[in-house]
Write a protein that binds this DNA or RNA. Structure first.
Lengths: 214, 214
DNA sequence: TTTTCGTAAGAACGATCGTTCGTATCATTG
DNA sequence: CAATGATACGAACGATCGTTCTTACGAAAA
């Protein structure tokens, strides 16, 4: 269906692959990995059941690819945000959390699937996803360690605090609803404030946020 | 197999029912609700497949009963702990979190299943579980609101902070491993400290905890 | 004793599962 | 032109699923 130069350029040639991945994401998000069938995926992608296997050799590979894409992009977003932030640990933490929260809000279903279906991955696919997740957590741990070293943070439990910060950001995927009270940016700033509180840093005065007054 | 007084006393008469529920919990925890089969449950309970249906009319009822039991006990533990605590909001919060963390550690699989498989409940069973979970969160919200009223907490986002406190306690089920660095009590106190930090309360000096020094 | 009823297990039901096979279409390659 | 290989679909495979049916055993009730 696409007129394109042969072989080399893969641009746009993956339209069907993308449609299948998108349908798999929706199916896994709605019914869970084992609750969704390949027939669900085929229906959502507008293709036939057997044709799925021209693009992915097995159902588990669909999940593996979804989770690899999601975790890699999350890691890339956070890495880029941190590299572009200031020197102070609090600034880098704020940048990381803003990127993290934005990803969860922009890709809520991906985040939810990555959180709850990663257990069904096996073998190398699982290791790859776990490695990406560890890399993300390592970023937070480094920022926290730097902040403790520089006296910005006073937490007695730096690594635990970092893990809980990640937990709070991930948990957004479980309760966030579009059009809610807080905008994506507000949610990011609120969670940055929570993170700084967990680290027992000195907090800036609260911004507008929510509550009775505005 | 049991010699017992007829009808009234149900003590011990539910041995098989308990065994089935326990096997279902292990199966759902290990493979997820849709990934585990009734044959897995029967094998784990040491009975036959068809005999399961003498105790539970459907697989979904197994999940419903498991989640109802878990959420009710969590709610009961927290309620009792709070009622036996002091008047200050910080004390009641500490008691609630200690009970909450203890439950998650004592019943990690139940907590994990309640967290990740509740989505597969339907109808009244789902509503009951959601109601119990809301009651639990309401306890936290009341404590936080009282603490804000009394000037103990300074958080600009009381309800959001309460929800995130619950998230942090629930998340323990996803990473806790028995025999870890912190005891159950230490973990509870650490999370109480995190909660107070989220609420922007004045923190007491850190206890022994972890880290280099002890 | 006879009846009843909770408990138990094996066999089988229809449905659905992930996956494979055979085949057809069609643009590109030689 | 013929050959190729990617793309596509219907049909069907064997396996497994949740559930039901049928029957049997044994203790309590009549």
């Amino acid at each position: 269906m696409n007129s394109r130069s042969p072989g080399l350029v893969r641009d746009g040639s993956r339209a069907n692959e993308v449609a299948i991945l998108r349908a798999a994401l929706e199916a896994f998000g709605a019914k869970g990995f084992h609750g969704a069938s390949m027939r669900d995926v085929a229906r959502g992608a507008g293709t036939s059941l057997s044709n799925l296997y021209n693009y992915f050799p097995a159902k588990s590979q669909l999940l593996a690819e979804l989770l690899r894409l999601a975790n890699d992009e999350l890691l890339a977003r956070i890495t880029e945000a941190v590299s572009g932030a200031g020197e102070r640990a609090a600034d880098r933490l704020r940048a990381a959390i803003a990127a993290h929260v934005a990803f969860v809000v922009d890709h809520q279903v991906e985040s939810l699937v990555a959180l709850s279906e990663v257990r069904y991955l096996a073998g190398v696919a699982r290791e790859g996803v776990v490695a990406a997740r560890d890399s993300t957590q390592n970023i937070y741990e480094r920022i926290v360690a730097d902040g403790v070293r520089d006296g910005e943070f006073r937490t007695p439990y730096p690594d635990d605090a970092a893990r809980n910060i990640v937990s709070l950001c991930s948990a957004i995927a479980t309760w966030y609803r579009p059009g809610g009270r807080l905008s994506k940016q507000d949610l990011g700033e609120q969670h940055a404030r929570y993170a700084l509180a967990l680290l027992e840093a000195e907090l800036p005065p609260a911004r507008s946020g929510k509550g009775a007054g505005r």
